[in-house]
Amino acid sequence: MALDGTELVPWAIKGELILNCNCTVFCPCVVSLGKHAPTEGYCQAWSGIRIDEGHYGDEDISGLNVGLMLEIPGLMARGNWKAAAYIDERASEAAYDGLVKIFSGAARGTTGLFAVLVSEFLGAERAPVVFETEGNARRLMVGKKIQGEVVPVPGKNGADQVVTNTEYWMGPDITVATATKGRVRAFGRVWDFDGRSAEICQIDWHGPK
């Protein structure tokens, strides 16, 4: 049972997540699990989620995309986050409602920490959320509000650098990346994070437990 008394619904998402933040080097939150401050002392970030397979209860959410905007004033683990979600305009009403519950933390499970850490949910709205892959580049476009592209940082012999076997909430294996474009124009924020830290993660999330 959720805090508001509504019945919790089983849900699952498999796909890929990309994230770009204002850290000047690879985000220390991944290995410190939020106990180390971001490189600039605070975090501003956008993220994109491509849902390859997913459901919320009986509603199929496969093939949909979600964009997020996050603002964290200091240590990730201390909370006081602000967040906003952009839900794929192709989503049915049931899918939209389910995705809002998932990404606000109300649906519990993997993203349930949002309900604890986000002190101000700025809102959710339908938008044309486009998640594209071309070669090793991933792009997220949410109209003029979020326009980003991230690419892996090459390691030895050109292979991706991957931080493996972590306990990071998004997933155990995080590909080290950088943003070739990271632009946010939303909720009064004007951010440009070209060349800054980025992450790529294969996700396998579920709830409510």
Rank of each mutant, 00 (worst) to 15 (best):
G41Q: 13
D204W: 06
R90P: 00
A85F: 01
V150T: 14
V25F: 03
G105Q: 13
E16T: 05
A127T: 12
A45V: 00
I13R: 01
T175P: 02
H36M: 05
P154D: 01
D97M: 04
G5R: 15
K209N: 12
C27R: 06
C43G: 15
F193H: 07
V66H: 03
V150I: 11
S197A: 03
I49T: 12
Y56G: 02
M170C: 06
V100F: 02
K209L: 10
M170H: 13
F26S: 04
C201L: 05
I61G: 02
F187R: 10
K35N: 11
I203Q: 01
I51S: 07
D204F: 08
D173G: 04
T164P: 07
F114N: 13
S119Y: 00
I102K: 04
P28K: 00
S104K: 12
C27D: 09
I102P: 10
E59Y: 00
W46D: 05
C201Y: 09
A179W: 11
A198D: 05
G98N: 05
N65G: 00
H36N: 15
G41F: 10
M1A: 12
P154L: 02
A198C: 07
I102N: 03
R50N: 11
W46L: 03
C23I: 09
S197L: 01
F114G: 06
L33R: 07
Q202K: 08
A83K: 14
A186N: 09
V100A: 09
A2V: 12
E132Y: 07
F103S: 00
R126Y: 04
M170Q: 11
A179T: 09
W191N: 09
P10H: 00
V116S: 13
L19C: 05
P208K: 08
L117T: 11
G123M: 05
A177C: 03
F187G: 12
D60Q: 02
G155V: 14
C21I: 10
K209T: 04
A95T: 06
P10A: 04
P128A: 09
T133D: 03
G155N: 01
S119M: 14
M69P: 08
G109P: 13
N157Q: 03
V184D: 06
E40S: 09
K209Y: 15
L3V: 14
S92C: 14
E149C: 10
G207V: 03
T180A: 01
F103E: 09
T111D: 11
F131Q: 01
Y96T: 15
Y86R: 15
V116W: 09
A83I: 11
G109D: 04
D192R: 04
G123K: 01
A137S: 05
R90Y: 03
I72V: 15
G74T: 02
A115L: 15
W191T: 05
E167C: 15
L8M: 08
L33A: 09
V142I: 05
V142K: 14
L64S: 01
A37W: 13
G54D: 07
L122F: 14
F193P: 07
G15R: 00
S92W: 10
L3W: 14
M76D: 05
E167Y: 14
S119D: 08
I51T: 06
I174L: 08
T111I: 02
P38D: 07
N136V: 00
W191P: 08
A94C: 12
E7P: 07
C29P: 02
F193I: 03
A12F: 07
F121T: 10
E89K: 09
M141P: 05
A94Y: 15
E40D: 05
